[in-house]
Every structure is written in structure tokens, then in C-alpha cells.
Design a protein around this nucleic acid. Sequence first.
DNA 1: GTCCTGTCATACCTGCCAGGTATCACCGAG
DNA 2: CTCGGTGATACCTGGCAGGTATGACAGGAC
Lengths: 287, 287
Amino acid sequence: MDTLETRELRYFVAVAEELHFGRAAERLGMAQPPLSRAIQQLERRLGVCLLQRNRRGVRLTGAGEVLLHEGRAALDATAAAARRTRRAGGADSPGGPRGRLVLAVKAAASHELLRKLLDAYAAEPDSAEIEVLPCGISEQEELLRDGRADVALMHTPWNSLAGFDSEALTTEGQVAVLPAGHPLAARETLSLADVRDVPDLPLARWPTQGTYAPGPGPEIHNQTQLAQLIALGRTVAVVPDSARSWLWAEHTAVPLTDAPPVVTHIAWPAHSRSLALAGLIRTAARL
Amino acid sequence: MDTLETRELRYFVAVAEELHFGRAAERLGMAQPPLSRAIQQLERRLGVCLLQRNRRGVRLTGAGEVLLHEGRAALDATAAAARRTRRAGGADSPGGPRGRLVLAVKAAASHELLRKLLDAYAAEPDSAEIEVLPCGISEQEELLRDGRADVALMHTPWNSLAGFDSEALTTEGQVAVLPAGHPLAARETLSLADVRDVPDLPLARWPTQGTYAPGPGPEIHNQTQLAQLIALGRTVAVVPDSARSWLWAEHTAVPLTDAPPVVTHIAWPAHSRSLALAGLIRTAARL
DNA sequence: GTCCTGTCATACCTGCCAGGTATCACCGAG
DNA sequence: CTCGGTGATACCTGGCAGGTATGACAGGAC
């Protein structure tokens, strides 16, 4: 009947993630019995069975899956409220810091665009201070959701824009990056099929949502590593056009005819109302 | 440092909405002093001044505005978690009710489409039960956010799809609905300028977000009322093509050449993961 | 079968804090 | 000046969150 408390959600999410009361309690910094009791109370209040306590471990019920998902979203929203409020604090003092904005960008992506955006925005009449927060591409959405960032430069098709407002800024093609001496490097253009089926050059794999797709290619952790592996003739990678800026002399980029185009968007939490953010978006749209 | 509690958010939102501790306390069913103290604690914990207590009333600071906005979103997300979990409860019992879905539709909009959608979905192999929740167009987004609904049929440009996933279903033009005898009713087509400037027929006004735009036309509360006023020759309205289904004999619909097209979307909370919902969306996309 | 181990639930206690009542301090209107 | 209306303070109390100790129960090893 009454509303869920943040504490209850935190407890349930911990248990649902660990699937183990003892470990969850440890993670929460508390003893196991009160945690068990809190979850029981939660189930009673919701009138729903959340966990299947088998003799030997715990499993989520359907309702539990729902609460895990929705509860995470609610906790994110709550954390975002706290963080954004703190960040806005003190913005009243006349002459004080105008609300700072945190911009999440995938490290080293959209170099040029980012530089132009920051310069253009700084030149605006009353621009806020922008803090650039470099992060992995899969973190951006989380940062925006839980309030650690206010706005992000995202790249479809890798990022999902679901749940955010966004505006498309630029579109670019993709290129295959090959070792300079490789036979394919002499071609004018390539197709995805061409680079997927090179026996001596397995396609590099990078993590999506923290896990690597199966495949023969090496697992890539960062750009420098990728650059080196390509230069050594051990792999080939498909990257957006703008990545040419960080290529080495031993690399050759060949345009791909059938790779999906990469669109850079500026994205922000839906219904964000902030003058500073609106100004940044306006500036970006004019680039 | 630590996380905001739902209770604190509820208290703050009440005070921020009422701008009056006494009334807020009454609304919350509690006494005023503990409420004052709770807000003070909240400010201390966040390290931020949220309210400007003038002698004689209360005003929001910038940080307070942020917390009001973000706090409402967090409370909505929390309420949604509770509601959707309750709704999913019992879905485990084999043969029990497969997760019910609540579909929010503007009353009387998209008749035909809705009927086709419900029929087609019911014919699917393992379809869930769909509860149709008729509501005003401005309520739909709120219902989706706070979990009272799982999916909605929305109409741009009236609804905002920001924050939701969505898929476009149909596009239609708009028509002007005039009293049958009116001179303009004889025309083949009209432009928006034509209907806006008819001296004897001021354009009907309906509420957007609960308030009426200023203007000479009558304020409309429901469709029947609108139909009657048009039939009486007192007003003219611009409505989507599909609204022809509820017109009277005394009405004439004339296509508008320059009205923005109305797109019907099926929309749902971003990142919703539910088999029943996925099935409904798939069915809708095939129509 | 009999341990032992790992798990979650129960019983019971305690200290903190949310919330209540009574009252104060302050200011503007008359 | 007094009065009404506001939010803040002082102080008390009951409920509940959380801790400790222990139980119930199921597997696995043998």
C-alpha cells in the first residue's frame, strides 16, 4: 500500500544480484538476519513472492526479476536526484559558479567535434563550466541515468538512445584499419564480408556490456593495444572515419562500402530543464 | 554521502509544491515540526540550501528546483517499481495469469487501430491479458512513468515521446470539422490560416498540461461537448483524419493542406524487458 | 545411517530516530 | 501595540532497524 523505501530497494537489489543473503549482507555492511527479515517484510508488503528459497541457494521469481530491473532504475533516479542537487548547490550565490555541467564522452572519440563544441560553447555569452568525463562507451548511459553526468556524446549504433532526449550532430562512414603491408590495404574500398573472412587477420573484438562476443580475434581493452596489434599484423578493425586521427604510419584505412554509418548524438536525460544544458545543446546543434 | 530515502523525497516534494510547511505537513498526514526538521536534515546531508525561508513564506532555490524535478522522477520510478512488481506477482504459478499489461489510450482516439491491435494480439500464441486504461492525452506519459501503465498509444505532435522507447504505427492528416451549413464547408481543402481567421467561428481550445491557451474560442472539456458546439455553429476544430468516425450528420470535415501530420506511436518505458510487452509491440509493428 | 557444513529463518534485545506536543521567535497587518 | 500566521526549537516516547545467538534443514562425505 505505502511506498517502497530506498533502503528496501537497496537491500533487495543486493540480494537479487548476489543470490545469497550472507554475501549480500556483507556487501551492505550489515548482519544477515535483519536482511532476511527486511526482504520478508518487503514481500509481505508487496503481497508478492520475490525469491524462491530453495534448500541451497536463492532464485528470482518473475516478480523478482521485475523488481530487480525497476528497482535499479529507481535507485539510479534517486542517486541522480542527490548528485544533481548537490551539483546545483550554491548556484544561487550571485556571481557564484553557474551550474557546472558534466559531459560524458568515450575517451578519444569525436576529438574534433568535441573540441569545436567546447570552444563554441565557451564563447557563448553566459556559458557554464563544462567538466569532461572520459569513460567507456558502455558506461555513458549509466552515468547519465545515475546523475554522475548531465549530457553525453553518444554514437549509434553502439550506444542506445532509449530513454534519453538526443539530437544527431554528425554522420560518418566506417573504415577498415589494416596493417600497411597487407594485400587488402591496396584496395580502394572493401566490404564487411572482405574483412570478416581474412584468414590471417581475425577481426578484433571489443566488449559490449562488459562481455566479449565469441570469435577468433584478440580481445581489445584499449585503443593503444588495438593500434599495436594492427601494426603487428595480428588483427584488423572496423572503426569510424574520424578514428583516422589516431592511426599510425604502419596503418592503412580503407573505406567500407556496406558498414552501417556512425551517427554522433548529443544526448541528455529526458525532460532535463537547465539553462546551461539548453545552451550547450543549442550550440551543438549549430555546429 | 549516503543515499536519499524515499521518505525524504516525499517530504521535500510536498513542501516544494505547497511552499508552506503547515499545508505540506497536513497533506502528508503529520505534524509540522518533524517535517521542518526532516527538511533541515536533508539540507544538511546534501550540504545544499534548498529553500529560502523568508519571513512570510518559502521559496525554492535553484538547487531546490533541481531536487523537485529529479525527486519527482525518482518517486515516480519508485512507485513504478512497486506497481509493476505487484502486477507481475503470481505470474509464476504455472497456468496462472501471464503478466497482465496495462495499455493507456486517449479515450476514443485510434478506435480502429486499437481494435485491430487488440484482436491481432489476442490471436497470438501466448498473449497476455491486456487491460485498456482510457485517460486524457496529458496523463499518458505520467501513467507510463509511475507504473500505472506499461504501454501507451501516443500521438505526436501532442504527446512527447522523450524518455520512452517507441515505434511509429500510422500517419494521418488532419481535417477541419465545421458546421455542415457553413460556407467553408463547401471547399475541397482548407489551410490552417483559413480556419484560424474565421470571424464567426473561433477555433476551439483544449487544455495542454491542464491549462488553456488564451484565445477567443470556447474551452473544450470533452469530445461530446466539442461535437455539440460545432454542430451549433459556435466553433471549428482541427482534428486528425481518423476522428471522422465520431462525426455527426451536422458536421463536415474538410482536409487541411498544411496541418502537421499526426503520427500514432506505440510507446513504452525505455529498456522494458517483458515477453508480453515485446509480443504486443511486435504485433503492433506488423499491422 | 552420522557427522559436518552451508544456508536461511527465528527469537530476543537494544539504541536510535521518526514523529508527537508544547512553545518560542519573528514579522506584517491592523 | 496587539494579534494572527509562519517556521524553528525543546523535549519526550514508541516503534523499528539492526545486532547476537541460535534453530531448522538439506546435502555431501564416508
